[in-house]
Design a protein around this nucleic acid. Structure first.
Length: 281
DNA sequence: ACGAGAACCTGTTTGC
DNA sequence: TGCAAACAGGTTCTCG
Protein backbone atom coordinates (compact mmCIF):
# COMPACT_ATOMS: atom_id res chain seq x y z
CA UNK A 1 0.00 0.00 0.00
CA UNK A 2 2.44 2.60 0.98
CA UNK A 3 4.52 4.54 -1.51
CA UNK A 4 5.28 8.21 -1.08
CA UNK A 5 1.75 9.53 -1.79
CA UNK A 6 0.15 7.10 0.66
CA UNK A 7 2.68 7.91 3.38
CA UNK A 8 2.11 11.61 2.80
CA UNK A 9 -1.63 11.03 3.04
CA UNK A 10 -1.18 9.20 6.34
CA UNK A 11 1.03 12.05 7.59
CA UNK A 12 -1.66 14.61 6.85
CA UNK A 13 -4.27 12.45 8.54
CA UNK A 14 -2.13 12.20 11.66
CA UNK A 15 -1.55 15.94 12.01
CA UNK A 16 -4.83 16.85 13.76
CA UNK A 17 -4.56 13.89 16.12
CA UNK A 18 -0.89 13.82 17.06
CA UNK A 19 0.86 17.08 16.29
CA UNK A 20 1.36 19.08 19.47
CA UNK A 21 -0.19 16.25 21.53
CA UNK A 22 1.36 14.29 24.38
CA UNK A 23 1.59 10.50 24.28
CA UNK A 24 0.14 9.47 27.63
CA UNK A 25 0.36 5.73 27.11
CA UNK A 26 2.31 3.56 24.69
CA UNK A 27 1.75 -0.17 24.28
CA UNK A 28 4.10 -2.46 22.37
CA UNK A 29 2.38 -5.77 21.64
CA UNK A 30 5.41 -7.67 20.34
CA UNK A 31 9.17 -7.30 20.62
CA UNK A 32 9.81 -7.01 16.90
CA UNK A 33 8.32 -5.95 13.61
CA UNK A 34 10.62 -6.60 10.67
CA UNK A 35 13.50 -5.82 13.03
CA UNK A 36 13.64 -5.79 16.83
CA UNK A 37 12.31 -2.58 18.33
CA UNK A 38 14.62 -0.72 20.74
CA UNK A 39 14.56 -2.42 24.15
CA UNK A 40 13.50 0.89 25.73
CA UNK A 41 10.97 1.68 22.99
CA UNK A 42 8.04 2.38 25.35
CA UNK A 43 9.79 4.53 27.99
CA UNK A 44 11.41 6.67 25.32
CA UNK A 45 7.98 7.54 23.91
CA UNK A 46 5.69 7.62 26.91
CA UNK A 47 5.02 11.13 28.22
CA UNK A 48 6.64 12.78 25.19
CA UNK A 49 4.97 15.49 23.13
CA UNK A 50 4.91 15.16 19.33
CA UNK A 51 6.19 18.51 18.12
CA UNK A 52 6.14 17.89 14.40
CA UNK A 53 5.29 15.16 11.90
CA UNK A 54 7.31 15.05 8.72
CA UNK A 55 8.14 12.57 5.97
CA UNK A 56 11.30 11.47 4.19
CA UNK A 57 10.75 9.14 1.25
CA UNK A 58 8.46 6.42 2.61
CA UNK A 59 9.37 7.14 6.24
CA UNK A 60 7.05 8.91 8.66
CA UNK A 61 9.00 11.00 11.19
CA UNK A 62 7.53 11.95 14.57
CA UNK A 63 9.70 14.64 16.13
CA UNK A 64 9.48 14.43 19.93
CA UNK A 65 10.11 17.03 22.64
CA UNK A 66 12.94 14.79 23.89
CA UNK A 67 15.00 15.75 20.83
CA UNK A 68 14.45 12.27 19.48
CA UNK A 69 12.62 11.16 16.36
CA UNK A 70 10.40 8.11 15.93
CA UNK A 71 10.87 6.65 12.44
CA UNK A 72 8.02 4.58 11.05
CA UNK A 73 8.13 2.56 7.83
CA UNK A 74 4.86 0.92 6.78
CA UNK A 75 6.49 -1.81 4.70
CA UNK A 76 4.02 -3.57 2.43
CA UNK A 77 0.93 -3.93 4.60
CA UNK A 78 1.44 -1.41 7.41
CA UNK A 79 -1.54 0.76 8.32
CA UNK A 80 -2.13 3.55 10.78
CA UNK A 81 -5.55 3.39 12.40
CA UNK A 82 -7.16 6.26 14.26
CA UNK A 83 -9.43 5.21 17.11
CA UNK A 84 -11.74 7.86 18.57
CA UNK A 85 -13.34 5.59 21.16
CA UNK A 86 -10.67 3.14 22.43
CA UNK A 87 -12.89 1.77 25.23
CA UNK A 88 -15.25 0.30 22.66
CA UNK A 89 -12.63 -0.63 20.08
CA UNK A 90 -10.93 -3.94 20.90
CA UNK A 91 -7.50 -4.60 19.45
CA UNK A 92 -7.51 -6.12 16.00
CA UNK A 93 -5.29 -8.94 14.79
CA UNK A 94 -1.86 -7.53 13.88
CA UNK A 95 -2.19 -4.38 15.98
CA UNK A 96 1.47 -4.14 17.08
CA UNK A 97 1.93 -0.68 18.61
CA UNK A 98 -0.70 1.56 20.25
CA UNK A 99 -0.22 5.20 21.17
CA UNK A 100 -2.80 6.97 23.36
CA UNK A 101 -3.02 10.75 23.50
CA UNK A 102 -4.09 12.97 26.35
CA UNK A 103 -7.33 13.58 24.46
CA UNK A 104 -8.16 9.88 24.94
CA UNK A 105 -7.75 8.95 21.31
CA UNK A 106 -5.58 6.14 20.02
CA UNK A 107 -3.30 5.71 17.06
CA UNK A 108 -2.54 2.09 16.20
CA UNK A 109 0.07 0.57 13.95
CA UNK A 110 -1.32 -2.54 12.29
CA UNK A 111 0.78 -4.67 9.96
CA UNK A 112 -0.16 -8.20 8.95
CA UNK A 113 2.98 -9.05 7.00
CA UNK A 114 5.29 -7.27 9.41
CA UNK A 115 7.57 -5.89 6.70
CA UNK A 116 7.20 -2.53 8.43
CA UNK A 117 9.62 -1.31 11.07
CA UNK A 118 10.31 1.50 13.53
CA UNK A 119 13.30 3.04 15.23
CA UNK A 120 14.04 5.94 17.53
CA UNK A 121 17.06 8.13 16.81
CA UNK A 122 18.42 11.36 18.30
CA UNK A 123 17.28 14.37 16.25
CA UNK A 124 20.88 15.34 15.61
CA UNK A 125 21.58 11.99 13.97
CA UNK A 126 18.50 11.92 11.78
CA UNK A 127 20.27 12.70 8.50
CA UNK A 128 23.03 10.18 9.11
CA UNK A 129 21.07 7.34 10.68
CA UNK A 130 21.12 3.99 8.93
CA UNK A 131 17.54 4.23 7.68
CA UNK A 132 17.83 7.63 6.02
CA UNK A 133 21.52 8.07 5.23
CA UNK A 134 21.41 6.54 1.77
CA UNK A 135 18.10 7.93 0.55
CA UNK A 136 18.15 9.85 -2.71
CA UNK A 137 16.53 13.26 -3.18
CA UNK A 138 12.91 13.99 -2.35
CA UNK A 139 11.17 13.90 -5.72
CA UNK A 140 8.90 16.81 -4.79
CA UNK A 141 11.73 18.89 -3.34
CA UNK A 142 13.83 21.58 -5.01
CA UNK A 143 16.87 19.31 -5.20
CA UNK A 144 15.25 16.98 -7.73
CA UNK A 145 15.27 17.65 -11.47
CA UNK A 146 16.35 16.17 -14.79
CA UNK A 147 20.10 16.66 -14.42
CA UNK A 148 20.09 15.27 -10.86
CA UNK A 149 18.18 12.21 -12.00
CA UNK A 150 20.45 11.79 -15.01
CA UNK A 151 23.50 11.88 -12.76
CA UNK A 152 22.03 9.20 -10.49
CA UNK A 153 21.32 6.96 -13.48
CA UNK A 154 24.70 7.43 -15.13
CA UNK A 155 26.60 4.18 -15.45
CA UNK A 156 23.70 2.06 -14.23
CA UNK A 157 23.41 -1.22 -16.06
CA UNK A 158 20.06 -2.28 -14.66
CA UNK A 159 16.71 -1.55 -16.27
CA UNK A 160 15.26 1.89 -15.61
CA UNK A 161 12.44 0.12 -13.76
CA UNK A 162 14.84 -1.48 -11.29
CA UNK A 163 16.84 1.74 -10.92
CA UNK A 164 13.78 3.80 -9.96
CA UNK A 165 12.83 1.26 -7.31
CA UNK A 166 16.25 1.82 -5.72
CA UNK A 167 15.63 4.38 -2.96
CA UNK A 168 19.16 5.74 -3.39
CA UNK A 169 18.27 7.09 -6.84
CA UNK A 170 15.14 8.92 -5.73
CA UNK A 171 13.25 8.46 -2.46
CA UNK A 172 9.67 7.32 -2.23
CA UNK A 173 8.81 5.54 -5.47
CA UNK A 174 7.44 2.00 -5.42
CA UNK A 175 6.14 -0.46 -7.97
CA UNK A 176 2.95 1.41 -8.85
CA UNK A 177 4.33 4.90 -9.31
CA UNK A 178 7.43 3.71 -11.17
CA UNK A 179 5.14 2.06 -13.72
CA UNK A 180 2.97 5.15 -13.93
CA UNK A 181 5.87 7.60 -14.22
CA UNK A 182 7.56 5.56 -16.96
CA UNK A 183 4.31 5.49 -18.87
CA UNK A 184 3.87 9.24 -18.70
CA UNK A 185 7.52 9.76 -19.68
CA UNK A 186 7.02 7.36 -22.60
CA UNK A 187 10.02 5.30 -21.55
CA UNK A 188 10.14 1.51 -21.70
CA UNK A 189 10.65 -0.09 -18.28
CA UNK A 190 13.18 -2.37 -19.98
CA UNK A 191 15.37 0.47 -21.18
CA UNK A 192 18.88 0.50 -19.74
CA UNK A 193 18.95 3.04 -16.93
CA UNK A 194 22.17 4.66 -18.10
CA UNK A 195 20.56 5.60 -21.41
CA UNK A 196 18.09 7.88 -19.63
CA UNK A 197 19.99 11.15 -19.97
CA UNK A 198 19.28 14.65 -21.23
CA UNK A 199 15.74 15.18 -22.46
CA UNK A 200 14.69 11.68 -21.44
CA UNK A 201 15.79 12.31 -17.85
CA UNK A 202 14.05 15.68 -17.96
CA UNK A 203 10.83 14.04 -19.10
CA UNK A 204 11.10 11.32 -16.48
CA UNK A 205 11.78 13.71 -13.60
CA UNK A 206 8.76 15.78 -14.65
CA UNK A 207 6.59 12.66 -14.94
CA UNK A 208 7.64 11.47 -11.48
CA UNK A 209 6.70 14.79 -9.93
CA UNK A 210 3.39 15.02 -11.80
CA UNK A 211 2.30 11.51 -10.92
CA UNK A 212 3.17 11.92 -7.24
CA UNK A 213 1.49 15.31 -6.98
CA UNK A 214 -1.70 14.03 -8.53
CA UNK A 215 -1.72 10.96 -6.32
CA UNK A 216 -1.27 13.04 -3.19
CA UNK A 217 -4.08 15.34 -4.28
CA UNK A 218 -6.35 12.31 -4.78
CA UNK A 219 -5.36 10.73 -1.46
CA UNK A 220 -5.99 14.01 0.26
CA UNK A 221 -9.47 14.19 -1.10
CA UNK A 222 -10.27 10.72 0.24
CA UNK A 223 -9.19 11.76 3.73
CA UNK A 224 -12.06 14.19 3.99
CA UNK A 225 -14.49 11.32 3.50
CA UNK A 226 -12.99 8.76 5.85
CA UNK A 227 -12.70 9.13 9.58
CA UNK A 228 -9.73 6.82 9.76
CA UNK A 229 -6.30 7.30 8.36
CA UNK A 230 -6.44 3.71 7.27
CA UNK A 231 -3.70 4.03 4.70
CA UNK A 232 -6.02 2.78 2.01
CA UNK A 233 -5.28 3.95 -1.46
CA UNK A 234 -7.20 7.08 -2.30
CA UNK A 235 -9.07 7.86 -5.45
CA UNK A 236 -5.89 7.85 -7.44
CA UNK A 237 -6.20 4.11 -7.96
CA UNK A 238 -8.97 4.91 -10.41
CA UNK A 239 -6.56 7.10 -12.34
CA UNK A 240 -3.87 4.52 -12.99
CA UNK A 241 -2.94 4.48 -16.66
CA UNK A 242 -1.15 1.14 -16.68
CA UNK A 243 -0.78 -0.43 -13.22
CA UNK A 244 -2.99 -3.50 -12.85
CA UNK A 245 -4.51 -2.90 -16.30
CA UNK A 246 -3.06 -5.82 -18.24
CA UNK A 247 -5.02 -6.37 -21.42
CA UNK A 248 -6.63 -2.94 -21.44
CA UNK A 249 -6.16 -0.50 -24.29
CA UNK A 250 -3.53 2.15 -23.74
CA UNK A 251 -5.39 5.29 -22.65
CA UNK A 252 -3.23 7.58 -24.72
CA UNK A 253 -2.10 5.98 -27.93
CA UNK A 254 -3.59 4.30 -30.94
CA UNK A 255 -2.22 0.82 -30.17
CA UNK A 256 -5.81 -0.40 -30.19
CA UNK A 257 -5.45 -2.85 -27.33
CA UNK A 258 -4.97 -6.60 -27.62
CA UNK A 259 -3.98 -8.68 -29.42
CA UNK A 260 -1.53 -6.33 -31.14
CA UNK A 261 -1.25 -3.56 -28.57
CA UNK A 262 -2.47 -2.38 -25.18
CA UNK A 263 -1.12 -2.75 -21.68
CA UNK A 264 1.08 -5.77 -21.10
CA UNK A 265 2.44 -7.26 -17.90
CA UNK A 266 6.00 -8.49 -17.64
CA UNK A 267 8.10 -9.54 -14.64
CA UNK A 268 11.28 -7.63 -13.79
CA UNK A 269 13.39 -8.64 -10.79
CA UNK A 270 10.50 -10.69 -9.57
CA UNK A 271 7.92 -7.92 -9.70
CA UNK A 272 5.10 -7.05 -12.07
CA UNK A 273 5.64 -4.27 -14.56
CA UNK A 274 2.81 -2.84 -16.65
CA UNK A 275 3.38 -0.79 -19.77
CA UNK A 276 2.38 -0.05 -23.35
CA UNK A 277 5.08 -1.31 -25.69
CA UNK A 278 3.88 0.98 -28.50
CA UNK A 279 3.99 4.19 -26.55
CA UNK A 280 6.99 3.47 -24.29
CA UNK A 281 10.40 3.16 -25.91
C1' DA B 1 31.30 -4.33 -7.21
C1' DC B 2 27.03 -4.90 -9.28
C1' DG B 3 22.60 -6.78 -10.36
C1' DA B 4 19.20 -10.52 -10.21
C1' DG B 5 16.80 -13.53 -7.24
C1' DA B 6 15.51 -15.31 -2.82
C1' DA B 7 13.94 -14.44 1.67
C1' DC B 8 11.13 -12.36 5.05
C1' DC B 9 5.46 -12.75 6.52
C1' DT B 10 0.29 -13.21 6.10
C1' DG B 11 -3.91 -12.30 3.64
C1' DT B 12 -6.50 -12.27 -0.65
C1' DT B 13 -7.38 -13.54 -5.29
C1' DT B 14 -7.13 -16.78 -9.04
C1' DG B 15 -7.35 -21.15 -11.28
C1' DC B 16 -7.97 -25.96 -11.64
C1' DT C 1 -17.36 -25.76 -3.80
C1' DG C 2 -12.69 -26.54 -2.23
C1' DC C 3 -8.10 -26.41 -2.21
C1' DA C 4 -3.59 -24.98 -3.81
C1' DA C 5 -0.96 -21.81 -6.20
C1' DA C 6 -0.08 -17.24 -7.37
C1' DC C 7 0.16 -12.72 -6.06
C1' DA C 8 0.50 -8.35 -3.13
C1' DG C 9 1.96 -1.30 -2.83
C1' DG C 10 9.10 -3.08 0.34
C1' DT C 11 13.60 -3.88 1.83
C1' DT C 12 17.71 -6.68 2.72
C1' DC C 13 20.60 -10.59 2.21
C1' DT C 14 23.00 -13.96 -0.67
C1' DC C 15 24.96 -15.61 -4.65
C1' DG C 16 26.94 -15.59 -9.24
Amino acid sequence: MPELPEVETVRRGLLPVLEGRRLTQVRQLRPDLRFPLPLDFVPRLEGRRVEQISRRGKFLLLHLDSQEVLLIHLGMSGRILLIDDPANSPLLPHDHVVWRTEEGREVRFNDARRFGFMDIVPAGELETCKALANLGPEPLGNAFNGPVLAAALRGRNSSIKAALLDQRVVAGLGNIYVCEALYHARLSPRRLARTVQGQRAERLAAAIRDVLRQAIAAGGSSLRDYVQTSGELGYFQHAWAVYGREGAACPDCSCGGPPHGGIVRIVQSGRSTFFCAQRQR
